[in-house]
Every structure is written in C-alpha cells, then in structure tokens.
C-alpha cells in the first residue's frame, strides 16, 4: 500500500468487490483489508456510496433545472400570486406617477403664485406708497389703480397703471421695468418718473425726474431724459416730448408747491389738485393777481391765509368749499 501500483491494485480490487466480479477468496481477502485498514475503509466507503448513488441516479433522468426555472418565473410573474405590496410593479409605477403629479402641481402652484396679480387702488383723497417685489417704490395719487405681479419674472418687471403714480425704479439692467399706462408703454431701467394717466383725462403725461425712459404709443416712440416730459393726446393720437416746465408736477406727492409769478387762478387749480378734500373757488377779478411763493407741505388753510393776507382778500368758508373774493389786481 505504499507504491502507486499497490494503491491502484487495491482500488481495482475494491471496484471488483462492489461489482461482484471477484472470486470468493478475493472477496474475503478484500473484506479483511477493509476491516483492518482505516484508510482503505474510508476509501471504500466513498466509492461504495458513489456506487449506490449511481444506481439510484440511473433510475431517473436528471431534472432539468433551467426548464424548471423558466416555469417558476412564468408562474410567479403572474398577478395571481400575492406579492408584498411594494414589490408589485404597478404600486411602484403608481407611486412614481403620484410623485410626478404632485411635483407638477407644486410647480404649477408656484408659477401661479408667481404670476398672481396684486391690485392696489386708492380713494380720491388717498395717497399710498407701494413697495414692489424688486424694491422699487410707487407713490399713488388718488383714484389710481396699480397692478403688479407678486413676483416679477426673470426677464421683465411688468406693471400696469391707471391714474397717477410716481415711480422710483430700482436699477436692474437685466430686467427692464415696463409700465403700461393707457395707450403708453413706458420702458425704464432705473429712474424716477411720474406717470399721469387718468382715463377721464384726454392727455397722458410721463415726466422724468432722473434717468432715461422710453415711451411708446403704438409705433411712436420718444426718449426722455431728466426734466423732460412726454404728452400723449388720446384724441389726436399724438405723442410729443417737451422740457418740463411744471415745477409742481410732483406736488401731489411732495405737497411742495413752487409758484413763480403765477396767477391766482392757476394757483387755485393746483391747490384743488393737491388738496382734493375741499374745493377752492376764486372770483375772476382776483384770479388775475400774480404771486411768487413756495409752500412746502403746508396745510391748505395756511396757504389760503397767506394768499388772503398778501392781496387783502375776503375768504368765506362753507362745508367743503372755500371762496376767495376781493378787489382784484
């Protein structure tokens, strides 16, 4: 049992024994070898086991694992089998769809919020200052409506004005600030300007305090610099630009009135504009008088008092009417 020949001999002897191909003598000799040699016994048990297993294996065909696997996949792929909820494809698809729908709804809501309009309307005697989402300020005169979006888009700042407003536009060269006022489209980058666009009045005015502004009405366009104003005549359809001579165009906002050799008739017209609560009436003879004065945010009563003393006039007060009479100039 030391050489390979011996080993091979023993192996052949054991196989012969299993096959029953040996003589009775050889058989008992083999049995003795198995009993006495542990190594032989172990080896013999191995091949004996293979010998018997092979006999059993020979009775049946080897099962076809691949075919069985296909059969299994087919059986378990059908919806008949209860799969934990999350493992079902439709549940996953539905979940993904739901997420998509929710996201779309979120985006839609966000956009609708972004485009949502803010409308500010003032009463006849009211003044109001509105702060825009970009930091621009708009002071509204009475009977004025301003529309602007809750959020400006990335490309443009668009507002709509009906009435009169003084705009202090925050500089943003990337996003022009566009005011739609009646028939006018006013494009500014960063500037201060007054827009007067009451639908009841026949003229629409844009007056620039500082900066540069483009005003268009249909095909017509004028460019305004500081202290220039554009006037659009709605009945004529004309758009003209002039130097602004009206020092008081912003008085509705500042209540600062500057008069240089101005007739009392004109002064009263301005006062009625700036102080809409009460109506000031003046007789024709007195209206011709001219005066130079600066009223800086004074109450109407004080202004009337200054005028009365200057020309030694008579003033009568009724409920909401002040009448000025006198000798005249």
């Amino acid at each position: 049992m030391t050489g390979s020949n011996t080993y091979k001999d023993i192996h052949e002897r054991l196989v012969r024994y299993l096959a029953g191909e040996d003589s009775a003598e050889e058989r008992s000799e083999t049995e003795r070898l198995i009993r006495t040699h542990e190594t032989v016994r172990g080896y013999f048990e191995d091949i004996r086991r293979i010998w018997h297993s092979a006999a059993i294996a020979g009775r049946h065909p080897q099962p076809d694992m691949e075919a069985a696997w296909r059969k299994f996949e087919k059986a378990t792929a059908s919806g008949m089998i209860s799969i934990p909820l999350w493992s079902r494809m439709w549940v996953r698809v539905a979940a993904v769809m739901l997420i998509l729908i929710m996201s779309a709804a979120g985006v839609w809501y966000f956009r609708s919020v972004q485009h949502r309009e803010v409308i500010v309307s003032t009463a006849p005697e009211e003044r109001q200052t509105v702060s825009m989402p970009d930091g621009s300020l708009v002071t509204l005169n009475g009977r004025t409506t301003l529309n602007y979006p809750k959020r400006f888009t990335r490309e443009v700042r668009h507002v709509q004005l009906e009435g009169e407003g003084f705009f202090e536009v925050t500089a943003d060269e990337e996003r022009p600030f566009i005011i739609n006022a009646g028939d006018l489209k006013i494009t500014v980058l960063g500037t201060r300007l007054n827009v007067k666009a009451y639908s009841a009045e026949k003229e629409t005015e844009v007056t620039v305090a500082s900066g540069r502004v483009s005003v268009t009405a249909g095909q017509k366009e004028v460019i305004l610099n500081a202290d220039e104003k554009a006037v659009f005549d709605r009945t004529l359809g004309s758009l003209t630009s002039t130097v602004n001579r009206d020092a008081n165009y912003l008085a509705w906002k500042t209540r600062k009135l500057v008069f240089r050799d101005t007739s009392l008739g004109e002064i009263v017209t301005q006062l009625n504009r700036i102080y809409p609560g009460q109506e000031v009436m003046i007789s024709d003879s007195v209206a011709r008088c001219r005066m130079t004065a600066t009223f800086d945010d004074l109450p109407l009563e004080q202004i009337i008092e200054v005028i009365r003393m200057t020309f030694d006039l008579e003033v009568t007060r009724e409920a909401d009417r002040i009448t000025i009479t006198g000798k005249g100039c």
């Binding site: 091979k8 192996h11 052949e12 196989v15 096959a19 172990g42 080896y43 048990e45 191995d46 091949i47 086991r49 293979i50 010998w51 092979a54």
Partner: peptide, 21 residues
C-alpha cells in the same frame, strides 16, 4: 474503465463525500 470511472467520480465528488464520512 470501471476502476477509472470510480476514481474520477470520487475525485469529482470529494466535497460531498466528506460530510458522509
């Protein structure tokens, strides 16, 4: 051939036979 077959098979199935032992 029989002897050879069993030799090959034993070699092939060694790991399955250990447990049996």
């Amino acid at each position: 051939q029989m002897s050879k077959a069993l030799q090959i098979l034993r070699e092939e199935l060694k790991e399955w036979l250990v447990l049996f032992l």
